[in-house]
Amino acid sequence: MSTEDAKMDELEFRRAVLADPNDKELAKATGDDLKKQAFVKEIKQLDKKITEASNIPVPDGLAHRLLLRQTMAVHTQKRQRSHFIQLALAASVAFILGISVTQWQFKEAASLSEYGIAHVLHEGDYALGASEDISLSQVNAKLARFGGEMTANTGQIYYANFCDFDNIKSLHLVMQGDNGKVSVFIVPHMQGYAIDSAVKGKWNSEAYDLSKASLVIVSDVPSDVAKMRDRLSKNIQFSA
């Protein structure tokens, strides 16, 4: 037998052992060859270990526990998803209610004076907390938009900015009254709003018609409302 044939026989023998180390025909092929016998023994031991490893007994109730764990995991995911949806809905409802309350607060104002109070309440300390010292020329630069002019200094002005007064661009001033800060709105004439006075909580308001705009004054001191009305009605003029 040639060397090449011997190699082929050896290769075929190894393939047969790997395929089935317990094949009875392998005893004939092994004969007295100690190397082949050792190889067969090694593969048989490996095969036995694999068989033993694959035959580990399954603990009682394992399938039930695995099914229970999977069910609980699915339940937890659903509960978390439901909780997230509830939070999102709650946030949406709160947002809508917030907008609705704000809109209601303004729309319920049936007069300029009531709307003035609602505006002050809505802004909180944003304007009333201002502490600037606005000059007369700065105020008149803004009043010019309405064709108006403040002819005399009426005391310190802490705040002067345009604002949205029920979708009408108006001028919002915060001025020094005799007893504290007073909110003043100069509003182009609006249809559908009464010119009157109003009281809500500690706030007092009065609306007063000038030639081309309405004056709305809000304060927590009733006497300051009347005094500021008299002061401004004499010192604000509008061009013809």
Rank of each mutant, 00 (worst) to 15 (best):
Q156K: 15
G147L: 04
L136R: 09
C163K: 02
A144T: 13
V139R: 03
R145K: 10
G155D: 06
D133F: 11
D133K: 15
N153V: 13
Y115G: 00
E123H: 07
G124R: 05
C163S: 02
Q156V: 15
E149H: 10
F162D: 10
Q156H: 15
E114D: 09
H122V: 08
G116A: 06
E114P: 05
N153T: 13
T154V: 11
I117Y: 00
Q156W: 15
K142M: 12
V120A: 00
E123G: 07
S135E: 14
M150A: 12
S113P: 03
G124N: 09
E149G: 08
A118F: 00
G116L: 02
G148K: 02
H122L: 08
Y159R: 14
T154C: 14
A127W: 00
A144E: 15
T151P: 06
L136T: 11
L121S: 08
L128C: 08
M150F: 10
G155M: 03
E123I: 06
K142W: 11
A160K: 02
Y115L: 01
L121M: 10
I117F: 01
A127S: 08
E114Y: 02
T154W: 05
I134K: 04
F162K: 08
D133V: 15
F146P: 10
G129L: 01
E149Y: 07
L136Y: 08
Y159L: 13
T154F: 04
F146C: 12
D133T: 15
G124K: 04
H119V: 05
T154E: 12
E149M: 10
G155A: 07
G155V: 06
A144D: 15
L121W: 02
E114R: 04
E114G: 03
H122Q: 11
I134F: 01
M150C: 11
S137C: 12
E132M: 03
A130M: 09
Y115V: 00
G148I: 01
A160S: 10
R145G: 10
A141S: 14
I117L: 00
I157L: 10
Q138I: 15
S135P: 09
Y115P: 01
N140D: 07
I134C: 08
E123S: 08
A141N: 15
A118I: 03
L143C: 05
R145I: 03
E149N: 11
Q156G: 15
T154K: 09
H122S: 09
T151W: 09
G148A: 03
A144Q: 13
F162T: 09
I134Y: 00
E132F: 00
L121H: 08
G147M: 02
F162L: 07
G155L: 02
A141I: 13
S113Y: 02
S135M: 10
A127K: 04
T151F: 09
A130Y: 07
I117S: 00
D133C: 15
G155F: 03
A152E: 13
L143F: 06
N140V: 04
A144H: 12
C163G: 03
K142G: 11
N153C: 13
A144R: 13
E123M: 07
A141F: 11
C163E: 02
Y115N: 00
F146M: 12
L136K: 11
E132P: 03
H119A: 02
Q138K: 14
